[in-house]
Each structure stands twice: as structure tokens, then as C-alpha cells.
């Protein structure tokens, strides 16, 4: 039995969109606090390899998941020490973090290459399994990260836009001086945002190694961290729009694989470029419009307002 193209793409979009969404949400929090972390790719890799290593060593994927989140958070705090405490250049530090992530994840993961894990358990509720086409597809057969992806996006939105903490984070991103003047500590808020964002980035990596592929391979993120950074712009720094963005980009990757499997008369090389073309188009379309702009102090170092 064949799954219709739309359902196949949707199923693939959800699977590859999950890690994109967590990574995008993490970067959104961080950028809302005024910090660009170009090292997201490295954070994801650290999450993927630490999560896999702990899962193999302990035999428990839940421990692996927790370790991945913790490792991502710690890595982002290290980045925070550079750019917030030491006031280093964010772009240069971000790239350094990325390469640090490449190396560290390779080192941590090397002894575990080829290890076999059972991975995060998946559930498919019985009433969903009776829908047409569902049993023969991956639809609704998800691990906890996929099931919770949308709720987490809503939670992040709520935290950023409906809590005092979120107001402080956003104020820091717009104008750290104003946030400081209103009695907030921009540095503390930025560290908190970085920790939360790092945890989400680590979980994004863990979804790749502990659920989607059940393996660790060097540089297995293959650019997904950078797509997530583009998705933050695509979603206009809004966690709810990020859901649509992650689905769209996950769908672009799924579409090129699904079209090939359908024997579509398109060059595989052309299909290969599709997600990246989409990225370029989105940046082009969004670029320039001031009302879609980034947090006003994004990427700027706050030297205090004494």
C-alpha cells in the first residue's frame, strides 16, 4: 500500500521538523535576549553525541535525553561566559563554539560509533492507528520529543510573551540599558535565556541520535543548526510561527526524498538544493521589512549603563 504524497511529506516533515523546531525555539529565546549564537550547530552535535554516549553507557535513553539537554545547556553557558561575562564578539565566539562542538562531539562519540541502542520509546494511540493510511506510515508513531514539540513551542511563547521573565528577556534584547534602568539585570537574564536555549538545542540533537537515526556519526546534524538560525528569522522571532517554519523546512527535505521515491522526473541534485533555496527565498522576502525586524539590540554587546 502506498501513502499519498501529501501524507508522506507531512509524516517526513514532522520527523525531520522535530529537531529543527527544538533548535529554532532555543535560538529564538537566545536571540530575544539579544544574543546571536551561530554555534547552534555545535550545540546540537554535543547534544546528539552526549545523549547517545550516555544512552549506550547506561542502557537508558531517558538518561541520555536528560544528559543531552544538560550538555546543551552547559555548552551555551560557556558561550554566555564568553559573550556576556567576557563581552567577546558574538559572531566570532559563535563560530568558535560551532567548531568546539564539532570536536567535542567527535571526541565524546568516537567510542560509541556503531553501538546499538533501542532509542526513545514511541507511542501511537490506538484510536489514531485506526485512521486510513496511518498504520502503514510513520504518522502518529512518535517519541516524547515529537509529541511535545508543539506544546513546548506554546510554552516558550507563553514564557516569552506572557510572563514577567519573558518581558525582561525581550526588554534585554531590545534595549539592555532600558532593562537595566527598570531594575533588571540583563546579564542574568541573558544567562538564563542561554541556558534554556542550550537545553532545547541539546534536545534537538538528541532527537537525531536517540530517535530518528539511532546512531551517532560525526557531523550528523549536516547543517540543520544553520537552517534553524534561518528559521528564527523566518518565524520573526515568534515561537508559534516557528512551528510552521519547522514543518515547512522539514517538509522541503521530506519532499525531495518523497519525490525521488515516487520517480518524479526531477534531477536529484536540484531536489537536493530545495531546502536551501527555500531558505534563501525566505531571507530575501523577509529582508528589509522593518516591522519584521530583529530585537533592536540583537548581536550588540552590552557594556553596562554606569
Amino acid at each position: 500500500m502506498t501513502t499519498p504524497l501529501g501524507l508522506g511529506v507531512l509524516a517526513g516533515a514532522i520527523l525531520s521538523g522535530t529537531s529543527l523546531l527544538y533548535a529554532t525555539l532555543g535560538e529564538t529565546i537566545v536571540e530575544r535576549a539579544g544574543i546571536v549564537n551561530l554555534g547552534l550547530e555545535g550545540i546540537m552535535l554535543i547534544g546528539a553525541s552526549v545523549g547517545f554516549a550516555v544512552t549506550v553507557a547506561s542502557g537508558n535513553a531517558w538518561l541520555g535525553l536528560a544528559a543531552a539537554g544538560a550538555a546543551g545547556g552547559l555548552a551555551n553557558l560557556l558561550f554566555g561566559w564568553l559573550v556576556v561575562a567576557r563581552r567577546a564578539n558574538q559572531l566570532a565566539s559563535g563560530l568558535a563554539m560551532m567548531f568546539f562542538g564539532f570536536g567535542l562531539s567527535a571526541l565524546v562519540g568516537a567510542p560509541y560509533v556503531g553501538a546499538v541502542i533501542t532509542g526513545l520509546p514511541k507511542w501511537r494511540p490506538a484510536w489514531l492507528a485506526s485512521l486510513p493510511w496511518v498504520p502503514g506510515s510513520t504518522l502518529f508513531n512518535y517519541d516524547i520529543l515529537t509529541w511535545l514539540a508543539v506544546p513546548v513551542a506554546v510554552l516558550v511563547w507563553w514564557a516569552l510573551f506572557r510572563t514577567r521573565w519573558g518581558l525582561g528577556v525581550r526588554a534585554t534584547g531590545e534595549s539592555p540599558a532600558a532593562a537595566f534602568a527598570s531594575g533588571r539585570n540583563p546579564a542574568v537574564l541573558q544567562f538564563q535565556a542561554l541556558a534554556a536555549g542550550g537545553v532545547l538545542g541539546g534536545l534537538a540533537g538528541a532527537h537525531l541520535s536517540l530517535s530518528l537515526t539511532l546512531t551517532w556519526a560525526e557531523y550528523m546534524t549536516a547543517g540543520r543548526g544553520f537552517i534553524a538560525i534561518a528559521l528564527v528569522i523566518f518565524s520573526k522571532w515568534n515561537p508559534l510561527r516557528a512551528i510552521a517554519g519547522a514543518l515547512l523546512f522539514g517538509g522541503a527535505e521530506a519532499l525531495q526524498l518523497q519525490l525521488q521515491a515516487r520517480g518524479a522526473d526531477v534531477s536529484p541534485f536540484l531536489l537536493e538544493m530545495f531546502p536551501y533555496l527555500l531558505t534563501l527565498l525566505v531571507l530575501l522576502a523577509w529582508g528589509g521589512a522593518r516591522r519584521l525586524a530583529a530585537p533592536a539590540s540583537l548581536g550588540r554587546t552590552f557594556y553596562g549603563s554606569q
Binding site: 501524507l7 508522506g8 525531520s16 529537531s19 537515526t213 556519526a217 521530506a254 518523497q258 515516487r262
Partner: peptide, 16 residues
Amino acid sequence: SDKAKEAGAANALLDQ
């Protein structure tokens, strides 16, 4: 060695 795409490719073939 793009593992996530390998998973997606296998899923696409099985969907077919």
C-alpha cells in the same frame, strides 16, 4: 553519511 536523510529516504521508500 547524512544519517537523518538516510532515515527519511528509507521512510519515503517504505511509504511508496
